[in-house]
């Protein structure tokens, strides 16, 4: 499977989706003008990955900030993980960032995938 590796920018997150190394991570800031366009390749990739997933998948979300346009697409991204066996969403937030922690908890309530919360 092809690897998705995007460097983060001022308004888009760093994305690493690599089945071979088992690294699945979105980090940084997500406030693109057109979130649907930015997340579309990620959603497609996960759709393909779900057909032949690794025995275990840790999907790391380490976002410092995301806008509301991205939040819908993050929900869609996490929903793609539903049904992939042995999948965990590892949701990182700064210790003092209650809003980001709460955002993670809300996503955990909206998708049927176990979440693990970590502080960085």
């Amino acid at each position: 499977m092809q690897v998705i590796h995007l460097e983060g920018t001022e308004d888009t997150p760093k994305v690493m989706l690599d089945k071979g190394t088992g690294i699945f991570e979105i980090s940084g800031r997500s406030l693109p003008e057109d979130a649907a366009e930015f997340y579309s390749p990620i959603l497609n990739w996960l759709g393909e990955y779900a057909k032949a997933a690794n025995p275990k998948t840790d999907f790391v979300v380490k976002l410092e900030y995301f806008n509301t346009a991205s939040s819908k697409l993050i929900l869609d991204t996490l929903s793609k993980l539903e049904g992939i066996p042995n999948t965990t969403v590892v949701w990182y937030h700064y210790e003092d960032d209650e809003d980001m922690q709460e955002a993670g908890q809300e996503f955990a309530e909206l998708v049927d995938v176990p979440f693990e919360f970590k502080v960085y």
């Binding site: 509301t68 346009a69 991205s70 939040s71 819908k72 697409l73 929900l75 809300e106 309530e109 909206l110």
Partner: peptide, 20 residues
């Protein structure tokens, strides 16, 4: 209200569902 909007908004509407 936020959760209701995010669940029901369409992918194509660029988050313009009033979530902001």
């Amino acid at each position: 209200y936020y959760k209701e909007l995010i669940k029901n908004s369409e992918l194509s509407d660029k988050g313009g569902a009033g979530l902001g």
